[in-house]
Design a protein around this nucleic acid. Structure first.
Lengths: 177, 177
DNA sequence: TAACCCATGTAACCTGTTACATGATTAA
DNA sequence: TTAATCATGTAACAGGTTACATGGGTTA
């Protein structure tokens, strides 16, 4: 239920074509809610049917035409109403936990190796979030409200990755210690 | 891709009917990977078609018959092989973050209220994990390997909920401070 | 009498992933 | 010449959610 609103959120900033949306998604909300270009085209079609977005054909020379999508007043109202709805917390869902649950079936080393590999993945993700946070983190209190909100989304990623990292460390120690 | 293996993991302990699986799922792997009874029946049918589980009809008086499912040797082998596969880290996905991203559309109070509500939800989840952890946490180092693995899955939940809680606190402070 | 438990399922729908398709332009 | 980029999409499938269906037994 969140993807259409993520798209509307991006279109609030300025109009985009589906192609551009798919590309810039990573640099805007994509690190919160990633989506493939197929999903984005599908959602844009649905959003247009609901009159939440409107598309304008942009003819181009030498390359395929664009469809430039912009958010409508109805779309903005829908987005605003959605933002005001409560969002239930998603439970932790991680395949690795089921693997630990059945971990007695395999050598302990294999589990420890999996945890170490996971640790490395989370370090990489953490660094990506930290890079993103740099432009806000010098003096967070001085930020505008809008910037504080954006910064908070990045901080969520940092908290999340750090929690995963410390869990990996702790579990490796518990198993080999 | 994880649900069938979660089911196999539970069936490793003892045979279950679909109904009992659906019920006991919460008390075993359900807190890691919850599933509705419809999903479980569907997966059991698929697992039986793959010969990973076998069902035995149990006639009952006065109430509907059961189908008792047990894991086969092939099922056990498949589970074991799956446990050895690497599991990619799932990125953080949380609707609330998209709402923060578009938070400038609504009064700041609404966002703070949403964060406080979220905080309460995570406190409740944390307490559930902590209750579950009690039987392991007195002296974790003395646990058997199998128990350590189960304990680690609960610790993952505790780390996760605590990260969410401290993010909520921090963000509320950032916004109102 | 109404609601819930036991025990099984079907059907429809939404979201996400993967693969495939087209056809021109540009850079290595 | 090969690959990548621009720009759009279709098709098929897997996984999860919600609603509906049946029908006897138990509890309030």
């Amino acid at each position: 239920m969140a993807l259409p609103y993520a798209i509307l959120a991006v279109l609030t900033q300025r109009p985009y074509s589906g192609y551009d949306l798919a590309k810039c998604f990573d640099s805007t909300v994509g690190f919160i809610w990633s989506a493939s270009h197929q999903q984005i085209y599908r959602e844009l079609t649905k959003l247009a049917a609901q009159h939440y977005v409107r598309s304008e054909p942009i003819p181009q020379e030498g390359r395929p035409n664009k469809k430039l999508y912009s958010i409508t007043a109805a779309g903005q109202a829908a987005l605003q109403a959605w933002v005001l709805e409560p969002s239930p917390a998603h439970p932790l869902r991680d395949e690795l936990l089921i693997k630990l649950f059945s971990g007695s079936l395999v050598p302990k080393d294999a589990i420890v190796t999996a945890l170490k590999q996971r640790y490395r993945q989370h370090r990489i993700s953490l660094e990506a979030y930290q890079t993103r946070a740099q432009r806000y983190s010098l003096n967070p209190v001085a930020l505008s409200d809008a910037e504080k909100l954006k910064y908070a989304t990045i901080r969520a990623g940092i908290h999340y990755e750090m929690a995963k990292l410390s869990w990996c460390e702790e579990t490796i120690r518990l198993l080999i210690g």
